[in-house]
Design a protein around this nucleic acid. Structure first.
Length: 679
DNA sequence: AAGGATTCCGCCCTCTGCTGGAGCCCG
DNA sequence: ACGGGCTCCAGCAGAGGGCGGAATCCTT
């Protein structure tokens, strides 16, 4: 691209056909068709130190095409822009201060020696052919090379050019800014001249950009520079390189360069743009020194630079917040007033700007998604979303956690992740005040814990209902997924490949009293019960009290015995009905009583289940010849010790030993009653 | 230069899925 | 009493939608 030709001076020979000169502020060079064809590289070895001008002249003559230079008065001149190299052997170009090679066949030029040994070279041809060479001394270059851009007028004339007037276009040392300067002791320029001579130095910025697409044009703009404070400018010929400040050091670290004090950002931007080694596609002439902004237009660049300015002249009269532009202020005030002039025709939404409305309509109504992923079918309304999506393909994770190895694909996820380090839980349940790290987690919590009509997930293969979809997935995986390996029933020879089928099958064995006594007709469902039962036949009592040597068939009964008779600290727990103060040894019995208890109406009737248990126990007592036992056998027996369970599910205890947490096992309870009555 | 249009960035949100600990149930 | 299996639950991260607002582009 033509615009980038300037940016790679070391390897090319660039010609610009049309140059529209707009002094003193701007010069625009417009390249006509095919202007950037010729290229060649002239390395240091190709340049004879003794005949630098000869080289330039040769290159100049070599150009098949020229440039049309147009002054403000529409005068046109053909110029060339070319890049040549000078080697360090060009000793005559160094240490000569301002050199005016007068007498070299009408060519005037100057070589500048910077304090750091850097050079700027400029040429001004005032003969029939006018040549202006601009040198750019880059630190990135080896000092053995000096880049020179030559602007050469091939045809026409510059009205202001005269023997008495020398215009010097140079780059101040290592800054890249261009100085147009009237020659020593010269007169004021002609009013008709393209260059307006001045007694003071003027600094210009050369801006090159491609022309209209397809026209193969290049536009070169030379603009007045606003180079900060005048006193901060390095004087011409006295350029110096200050010790780099921190910002400069950062740039240096990134391969940048050191800058003299007072060099304006625009200047730096220009020189950075022209630096060799920079990818061509990345070369935009104006690079902000404070951020990553680049622009091909100085107008945009200047406007951008205002964003780094703290100047905000437009103040909101409602909140005193200041803004840089009127538009920003107006939009801001709209947020106060609620003014949203752009209303959606398809819904009630309204927006401050038209762009917001367009975007909204794409999201909600038209579903137009112009940004399409080249890898998958994803498409998005916004480019930034596509960019974010693309990271899911590339795996790029630009946002690295500073405390662990986690890296995120976007800033929000990193921010969210950081809560795992900080412990921050910004979301609080409004009901129970439990806090959560993510809003979604809290939402699920509220839904499952505090909401009615909680959605449940029905397993399609069984009756299981699960609160969360993710858990249903686990359920399906564990119970309804085909397994290659056979799963055998623990009670028979049946085999299954699905765990749910196995479980269901095994349940068919559940009510079978599979354990049958070999001495009597007793049968039971659990092997442990049969073990205990068998001891009634064998007389085996394997559990012996260490204090009194009394033996028991069951460990639990030994424990009850020990607590009751040998544990001085043992205090039976009693539960009282809060309404009538009736005492219960079991929490669940008390609860059951309390639910029906009306303290003013006397003792509630025992439930059917309680009655059945009592009858059974009293029958056992009677059979055992214990008819003098207390009438309230249940209370007497169990009011020894009760484990306290504050939850809803209450274990059933006998003598302080939990024997189950569901229905009474009557086999056990009767035996226990008998055992305890024996004591 | 002004102002509208467009682009870009950042933030917040939802939905989703995976994971592991806790507690319950059951054998 | 114990262990295994299951569900509940919170934590955490991936992906994407939607919008506010600032910056930049472009037209007049």
């Amino acid at each position: 691209m033509a615009g980038t030709e300037l940016s790679v001076p070391s390897e090319q020979f660039t010609k610009i056909k049309a140059w529209e000169l707009m002094p003193p502020k701007a010069l625009e060079v417009v390249q006509e068709e095919g202007a950037c064809r010729g290229r060649e590289h002239l390395g240091p070895g190709n340049v004879e130190a003794q005949d630098t001008y000869g080289l330039l002249e040769a290159k100049m003559l070599e150009g098949e095409r020229g440039l049309v230079l147009t002054t403000e008065e529409s005068e046109k001149h053909i110029v060339t822009l070319q890049t040549v190299h000078f080697s360090s052997e060009d000793v005559q170009l160094q240490d000569v201060g301002w050199l005016t090679p007068q007498g070299r066949e009408g060519v005037q030029g100057a070589v500048r020696q910077a304090s750091g040994g850097e050079q700027s070279l400029l040429w001004l041809d005032e003969g029939s052919q006018q040549c202006v060479a601009i040198s750019i001394q880059e630190e990135a270059y080896t000092l053995q090379e000096l880049e020179v851009m030559q602007l050469h007028v091939l045809e026409g004339s510059v009205a202001v050019a005269s023997e008495d007037t020398k215009f010097v276009v140079s780059l101040a040392e290592s800054t890249g800014w261009v100085k147009l300067e009237k020659g020593q002791g010269e007169d004021q320029p002609s009013a008709e001249g393209g260059f307006r001579a001045q007694t003071q130095e003027q600094f210009f910025l050369v801006e090159a950009k491609p022309g209209d697409e397809g026209s193969d044009e290049i536009v070169l703009t030379i603009s007045n520079l606003n180079v900060g404070e005048q006193e901060d400018r390095p004087a011409s010929g006295q350029g110096h390189v200050e010790k780099a400040n921190s910002t400069d050091n950062q740039k240096k670290a990134k391969g940048g360069r050191r800058w003299p004090v007072g060099v304006a950002p625009e200047v730096r931007a220009f020189v950075e743009w022209t630096a060799p080694g920079k990818p061509q596609e990345a070369k935009r002439p104006f690079c902000c020194d404070s951020c990553v902004f680049t622009s091909s237009r100085i107008s945009s660049f200047n406007r951008h630079m205002k964003t780094h300015s703290t100047e905000k002249p437009h103040v909101c009269h409602l909140c005193l917040k200041a803004f840089r532009t009127v538009t920003l202020l107006r939009n801001h005030i709209n947020t106060h007033t609620g003014t949203r002039p752009y209303k959606c025709g398809d819904c009630v939404m309204a927006f401050v700007t038209s762009g917001e409305l367009v975007r909204h309509r794409r999201y909600k109504h038209t579903h137009e998604k112009p940004f399409k992923c080249s890898i998958c079918k994803y498409a998005s309304v916004e480019a930034s979303k596509l960019k974010r999506h693309t990271r899911s393909h590339t795996g790029e994770r630009p946002f690295q956690c500073s405390l662990c190895s986690y890296a995120s694909k976007d800033t929000y996820k990193l921010k969210r992740h950081m809560r795992t380090h900080s412990g921050e839980k910004p979301y609080e349940c409004h009901v129970c005040h439990t806090r959560f790290t993510q809003s979604g987690t809290m939402k699920i919590h509220v839904l499952q814990k505090h909401s009615k009509n909680v959605p449940k997930y029905q397993c399609p293969h069984c009756a299981t209902i699960i609160a969360r979809k993710s858990d249903l997935r686990v359920h399906l995986l564990n119970l309804h997924t085909y397994k290659a390996t056979e799963m055998k029933c623990r009670y028979c020879t049946a085999v299954f490949h699905e765990r749910y089928a196995l479980v269901q099958h095994q349940k068919t064995h559940k009510n079978e009293k599979r354990f049958k006594c070999e001495y009597c007709s007793y049968a039971c469902k659990q092997e442990r019960h049969m073990t205990v039962h068998i001891r009634t036949h064998t007389g085996e009592k394997p559990f012996t009290c260490v204090s009194c040597n009394k033996c028991f068939r069951q460990k639990q009964l030994l424990n009850v015995h020990f607590r009751k008779y040998h544990d001085a600290d043992f205090i039976p727990t009693v539960y009282q009905c809060p309404k009538c103060s009736k005492s219960f040894s079991r929490w669940n019995n008390m609860q059951r009583h309390s639910a029906k208890c009306d303290a003013g109406q006397g003792k509630p009737a025992a439930s059917g289940k309680v009655r059945r248990v009592k009858r059974r126990k009293l029958a056992v007592l009677k059979e055992a010849g214990k008819e003098d036992a207390p009438k309230d056998a249940t209370k007497e027996v169990s009011a020894v010790s009760v484990k306290q369970y504050p939850g809803e599910t209450v274990p059933v205890c006998y003598g302080g030993v939990a024997v189950g947490n569901k229905d009474l096992d009557e086999d056990l309870s009767c035996e226990m009653i008998l055992q305890m009555m024996d004591k």
